[in-house]
């Protein structure tokens, strides 16, 4: 909803009073709300660092949806059956939709979408590194659905209970829609695995290439995770990276068996004592390299995103100019842009 920045209101009202006393009271109310599992809403006071963490995380999530369209859109024009073509188109469309929900959630924190996109385009904000890997065959579309979306869902389901209301609500909607994504990917791989020997090999090759990057999607190990502890305390995050990674591995092992495909990890085996699967070491050097921008597709993804944005500028300008000319029929909305932004800043 509309979000006159609460912080400002609070501080403005407290002008003259010692700022620290006031902040302490607000901080206390905030901490109590989080502790009681209540949701924080846009106009509530919140610590600056909480706001900044949320903007960073929601924006990164939104960017991931938008950049994530590219590796899959890469196959829309080559989908091998009309049924698959329709499914893939609907899926890529959902990702645009999810990006929109998330940018809206980020905007409730006072940062406009243009500003967020600008940060994406200039490399100041990140997106999930997984999308810096290429989709080389049709089976990659299936592997993304099964493993990448599977990992994303494992990460995202707990976010439906995130302490920040708009983010939690966006995630509820997204998770509902995501479940089709994972299933279609699994079904796609199953068809390949049970198909011709060439198709089976294609599926195995895709799983071989996507398995480890999918495990990296849960982020660095807990002892190396920079933001984890504070985010857990704020209930933005509910489970640690390693916990979620383990959960994902445990879910995938029997699913891979049903697919008739193997997961590319010789150390993968059931550990009776732990009640979990053990798995081999993750190549964190690769993770940090891709994160730094040295992945196979980092440059390509951003270049395409920037190009689409730049080439669309004249279209966005035209619509804005048209709205300005026809203010009478558009409830005077054409010139409210500035106000909205100011209010949100």
């Amino acid at each position: 909803m509309a979000t006159a920045a609460p912080q400002r209101t609070a501080r403005t009202q407290a002008a003259g009073a010692p700022d620290t006393v006031d902040t302490a009271a607000y901080q206390h109310a905030f901490d109590a709300a989080v502790a009681a599992d209540e949701r924080i809403e846009p106009r509530d006071w919140m610590p600056d660092a909480y706001r900044a963490t949320l903007v960073r995380q929601i924006a990164q999530h939104a960017h991931s949806e938008i950049i994530g369209m590219q590796p899959e859109a890469n196959w829309i024009t080559r989908a091998p059956s009309l049924r698959r073509k329709a499914i893939l188109m609907a899926k890529v469309q959902d990702e645009a939709g999810h990006g929109l929900y998330l940018y809206s959630a980020a905007e409730t924190l006072g940062t406009g979408r243009d500003e967020l996109l600008d940060k994406l385009h200039s490399g100041r904000q990140k997106y999930s590194s997984i999308f810096n890997y290429p989709t080389l065959t049709w089976a990659d579309v299936g592997a993304i659905g099964w493993l990448v979306d599977g990992a994303a869902i494992t990460n995202q389901v707990p976010l439906c209970r995130c302490s920040y209301g708009p983010y939690a609500r966006a995630m509820v909607r997204i998770c509902k829609e995501e479940s089709f994504h994972q299933r279609q990917g699994y079904e796609l791989l199953l068809a390949l695995s049970k198909g011709t020997p060439e198709q089976h090999a294609m599926a195995q090759d895709a799983v071989d290439r996507w398995w480890w990057p999918s495990l990296m999607m849960f982020g660095p190990p807990d002892d190396a995770s920079q933001h984890s502890a504070q985010s857990m305390e704020w209930k933005i995050k509910r489970h640690s990276n390693d916990e979620l990674r383990q959960r994902f591995v445990d879910i995938c092992v029997p699913q891979a068996e049903s697919l008739g495909l193997t997961l590319p990890d010789p150390d993968l085996r059931w550990n009776e004592e732990r009640g979990h699967h053990d798995f081999g070491p993750i190549d964190w050097t690769e993770f940090w390299e891709v994160l730094k921008g040295n992945g196979p597709c980092n440059e390509q993804r951003i270049t395409q995103r920037r190009r689409a944005h730049d080439e669309g500028a004249w279209v966005r300008e035209a619509a804005a100019a048209h709205a300005a000319k026809h203010t009478g029929t558009t409830s005077g909305t054409a010139d409210t842009t500035g106000e909205t932004e100011a209010e949100r800043a």
Binding site: M1, A2, A4, P6, T9, A10, Q13, E41, R43, D44, W45, Q93, G97, E177, S331, T333, T336, E339, T340, E343
Partner: peptide
């Protein structure tokens, strides 16, 4: 797009007046 509605309202966000949490 998944058949969630039969009617839609849109309101400029700037036109919403909200009560303040304070």
């Amino acid at each position: 797009r998944r058949g969630e509605g039969v009617s839609i309202w849109v309101v400029p966000a700037a036109a919403v007046t909200a009560s303040s949490p304070d």
